[in-house]
């Protein structure tokens, strides 16, 4: 017998090589869930990517397979991508700090200069 293929799937499942494909339709691969993982207790959860899943339980299962391998994860969150609201990079200027607001920076407060000056003044009396 001539071996048709080295792939056991070809022979055992009797896969036809030339069969036309019934194309995948919209949502064939379900919707997406965004995945957040925690690498260690005490750390914050971080966004790592997404999975396609039919519901949250299965999203967690797939997230464990894709993002939780090799012991680099202790906890996972998933949320539907459609439930995440995000700011637009075009509006990034809302985060810009104005220079006049330096009174909010610790470096703005230079008490030592005043204390030093005060002490020098006292000594000279």
């Amino acid at each position: 017998m001539k071996i048709q293929s080295l792939d056991p799937r070809i022979t055992r499942s009797e896969i036809e090589l030339e069969k036309p494909f019934d194309e995948a339709k919209e949502l064939d691969q379900w919707q997406t869930y965004e995945v957040f993982h925690q690498t260690k207790r005490g750390q914050q959860h971080q966004h790592v990517g997404c999975v396609h899943a039919p519901n949250a339980e299965m999203a967690l299962l797939f997230a464990k397979e894709v993002y939780g391998r090799r012991g680099l994860c202790v906890n996972l969150w998933v949320a539907k991508s459609s439930n995440i609201f995000a700011t637009d990079y075009e509006d990034a200027d809302i985060f810009e700090c104005e220079e006049v607001k330096t009174y909010r920076d610790p470096g703005y407060y230079k008490v030592m200069d005043r204390i030093k000056a005060f002490k020098e003044k006292q000594q000279s009396i």
Partner: peptide, 26 residues
């Protein structure tokens, strides 16, 4: 192709009616 076609009924059975696709964030 075989894997896509043979797995389709499972994906279809689990698909919820209210499912909606949006572009993921990644």
């Amino acid at each position: 192709k075989y894997a896509e076609e043979k797995g389709r009924w499972v994906r279809k059975a689990l698909l919820r009616k209210d499912a909606e696709y949006v572009t993921p964030l990644v």
